[in-house]
Amino acid sequence: MKPEVSMVKIGTAVESDAAVITEIYNDAVQNTTAIWNEKTVDIGNRIQWIRDRQAAGFPVLVAVSEAGETIGYASYGDWRPWDGYRHTVEHSVYVHKDARGHGAGLALMSALIEHARKHGKHVMVAGIESGNRASIALHEKLGFKQSGQLHEVGMKFGRWLDLTFMQLKLDTRERP
């Protein structure tokens, strides 16, 4: 897959997107520190993930190239499970290895932010492996501010990983 990404369309994921979402997810598991998981998943797992996210009212978005190829996906969900955090979400965004650096991540993130604003969310949180300079730069471009760093809280590929937290205030409400 070598998609041309001059313009991407963002849409809602459907179950037929699960094969490409699985491929993108598994590549991130096997080859990057973007996902701190060591186990790959199958298409059935991603179909259930899409169903569960959407049933809970959370978006699962896909980026589609001009050629009609799904080249990335994104979602957000509860940051923490307690009621007091219900206005805060944490997101994930992943782009196919052959489509990175061409705007799909920016388009997905922009759509997620807009969705969260429309649904009354107040803060969006990002947890990023501290060495992932491209992701940190993308988030900064979108207005996210670094809010903390946790040292050596994860491990992958035989080394400790640091986690950088970033956040974006989505509205100016003084009260929930």
Rank of each mutant, 00 (worst) to 15 (best):
K2A: 09
K2W: 10
S6G: 01
K9I: 14
T12V: 13
V14G: 06
E15R: 02
E15I: 06
V20T: 15
E23Y: 02
Y25E: 01
N26V: 05
A28E: 11
N31L: 00
W36E: 05
N37M: 08
N37I: 05
D42C: 15
D42T: 12
I47V: 15
I50A: 04
D52L: 11
P59H: 10
V60C: 07
V62F: 09
V64E: 12
E66L: 09
G68R: 03
G72E: 06
G72Q: 09
A74M: 10
S75W: 05
S75Q: 10
Y76Q: 07
Y76C: 11
Y76E: 05
W79Y: 15
P81Y: 08
W82C: 14
W82M: 15
D83M: 09
G84T: 15
G84A: 15
R86Y: 15
R86W: 12
T88C: 13
V89Y: 07
V89G: 08
E90K: 07
H91W: 10
H91N: 12
Y94F: 12
V95C: 02
A99D: 02
G101R: 03
H102G: 00
L112G: 02
E114F: 13
H115P: 02
A116H: 05
A116I: 01
R117G: 06
H119L: 01
G120T: 08
M124L: 11
A126T: 06
G127C: 11
G127S: 13
G127M: 10
E129L: 05
G131N: 13
N132F: 10
A134M: 03
I136G: 01
A137G: 11
L138N: 09
K141T: 14
K141W: 12
F144R: 00
G148A: 13
L150E: 11
G154W: 02
F157P: 02
L163Q: 07
L170T: 06
L170R: 02
D171K: 01
T172K: 12
